[in-house]
């Protein structure tokens, strides 16, 4: 059992191999390589236009790469090239073993259907056919993301921004994914709500042993959540390392600028 666990965390979950994306002469992303291990949180930071979101879309199989590839270790332990997966397999992976948290919750939620159905959708998509059990699981998850269960039948359009974002997280985690992609999950929220969301995320990530790739321009988010940081500029990774190392002792001039741009509290 211990050997099994060791094996489980010893092999990378997601491997990016010289990922590139160009639109004609414009290079959005160039030669990005890294390996993500189970339970590891990787933050990708950089200014707008640095290629962070392009990279995230390629990693999550939503955008075809111009060069290089992504492989993922499936639940059966076999590492497979994402580009070689069929569409049905890729979509199943996206619905079960992965999560994707959008910056704008309206993109990740069905705004017109109730919170319970939003959380339950993934379960129904994998064949759950018992209303009582789906609802039980949905209430359980609402509680875990600190949403009042009494609001289970309300549509997310009646929710506040922070609640929507927490609902989106519950919706993604209900199938027990091993890897979650997050695109600026705290963008557009006010500071106190951000703090609460980050606290929640940190607990969930640790508790569920999630691997996370989080894209953010907010270094505070990176510091609080991530183990490792990748700094991007102009489509290239210019610096990478442990979070405290990169943020406290930046090597590259651009990273130094980024770190020094934070207003002192």
């Amino acid at each position: 059992m211990a050997d099994q666990d060791l094996l489980e965390t010893d092999q990378p979950l997601l491997i990016a191999d010289r990922l590139s994306k160009s639109y004609g002469r414009i290079v959005a992303c160039r030669d990005v390589s890294f390996a993500l291990y189970p339970g590891e949180v990787l933050a990708i930071v950089g200014e707008s236009g640095s290629g962070k979101s392009t990279l995230l879309q390629m990693l999550s199989g939503q955008l075809a790469a111009s060069g290089g590839g992504v492989s993922y270790r499936m639940r059966d332990g076999v590492t497979r090239d994402l580009a070689a997966l069929g569409e049905a397999e890729r979509r199943l992976l996206f619905r079960t073993d992965w999560g994707f948290v959008h910056q704008d919750p309206a993109q990740g939620l069905r705004m017109a259907v109730s919170a319970g159905a939003n959380v339950g959708e993934r379960l129904m998509a994998v064949g759950w056919n018992h209303y009582g059990r789906i609802r039980e699981s949905a209430s359980d998850w609402l509680t875990r993301v600190e949403i009042d269960v009494a609001r289970i039948d309300d549509a997310p359009r009646t929710y506040s921004g922070g609640m929507r974002q927490r609902l989106q997280i519950a919706r993604n985690l209900v199938t027990g994914p091993r890897l979650v992609f997050m695109d600026e999950p705290t963008g557009g929220l006010d500071v106190s709500v951000q703090a609460r969301l980050l606290d929640l995320l940190r607990n969930l990530v640790a508790e569920l042993h999630l691997a996370v790739v989080i894209v953010t321009h907010d270094l505070a988010v990176a510091r609080l959540l991530s183990h490792r940081v990748m700094v991007m500029k102009g489509g290239c990774v210019i610096e990478t390392g442990l979070t405290d190392q990169v943020l406290d002792d930046p090597r590259e001039p651009y990273t130094q600028l980024l770190v020094s741009s934070i207003l002192p509290p």
């Binding site: 109730s114 319970g116 159905a117 959708e121 993934r122 209303y131 609802r135």
Partner: peptide
Amino acid sequence: RRMHALAEYGLMHVKLYEDIAR
């Protein structure tokens, strides 16, 4: 059309779920 092609019909149950919830 893609959902039909891949037989992804979880969404149909979302509608029925909404009915029961409401």
